[in-house]
Design a protein around this nucleic acid. Structure first.
Length: 266
DNA sequence: ATGCCAATTCTCAATTGA
């Protein structure tokens, strides 16, 4: 089972690239972030025609997450969770989760996460980010209890280590790289989760985001902020992980590229 | 230190992102 996470930065703008990616890469599960569209406007028919079941949580203009599941895999009935537990007042569309099952594969629980950016750090946005990460840690812990493999995939908006940025000094006081942000990320890992890409590829220079500005792509001024975190049972099945970097070089790209892990059937 | 770019919105300027 191949599971991909991709912040598309507007599902409407990126639909041609997404459909081409589904056709070429044929991932089994796709976790999308930054749909920037309400559920009524989600291009459901086009994606279903490509062979995928869709569950989405959208809102106007900002945020928005979705899960795509390629047939014959399916989303277990009544298994979809919309919104991260822990704060009923949080109305931002940043979390969707479901149990994925198939005839020949062991089930896997998969979440698509759009973690808050947190900038500027002296605004309420930064404490919101840290509170969201603590909620995610607690939920990640709860999800391990039934021992079904868990993959928490998404745009974490966290640069875990200096090796995950081409120029770490440039991010020193940014919400993506502040010590408290990195500590909150490590606290999730400490619950027993593994950074899937890092577990497969120890090299420096693995990036998943290049800013549209200042020629970041051309100069390879990237950062690694899109992650797939695997519970112990999921990590036992980890076969490979990779970044689909070439998509950043297309016309009208997202500023993020897909990241994919492959799990054995069980 | 700021803008650089891209997308969205009750658009022609402001807001958000990272």
């Amino acid at each position: 089972m191949r599971i991909t996470t991709w912040n598309v930065n507007s599902i409407k703008q990126r639909l041609p690239h997404l459909l081409a990616f589904l056709d070429e890469a044929r991932p089994d599960v796709v976790c999308l972030q930054e749909l920037k569209c309400q559920d009524e406007a989600f291009p459901r028919a086009e994606i279903e025609n490509a062979g995928y079941a869709v569950e989405a949580l959208g809102q106007k203009a900002y945020n928005g997450v979705a899960l795509l599941v390629r047939k014959p895999l399916a989303i277990a009935p009544d298994s979809v969770r919309r919104g991260l537990p822990g704060d009923p007042a949080d109305e931002q569309a940043r979390y969707i989760e479901a149990l994925i099952s198939g005839e020949t594969e062991q089930p896997v629980r998969v979440a698509s996460i759009y973690l808050p950016n947190g900038n500027p750090v002296d605004s309420p946005k930064y404490p919101y980010k840290l509170a969201f990460m603590e909620r995610l840690r607690l939920h990640a812990r709860a999800l391990m209890e039934d021992e079904i493999p868990v993959v928490l995939a998404g745009d974490y908006n966290v640069i875990p280590e200096p090796a995950d940025a081409a120029d770490p000094e440039a991010w020193r006081s940014d919400a993506l790289f502040l010590p408290a942000s990195r500590a909150a990320f490590r606290a999730i890992l400490a619950e027993g989760y593994t950074d899937g890409l890092r577990a497969c590829d120890p090299r420096d220079g693995l990036y998943t985001f290049w800013d549209y500005q200042a020629g970041s792509w051309q100069r390879n001024f990237g950062i690694r902020i899109d992650h797939l975190l695997l519970s112990p049972q999921a990590c036992d099945r980890l076969v490979s992980a990779s970044v689909q970097k070439h998509l950043r070089g297309l016309d009208k790209p997202s500023d993020h590229v897909p990241v994919t892990v492959e799990l054995s059937a069980g």
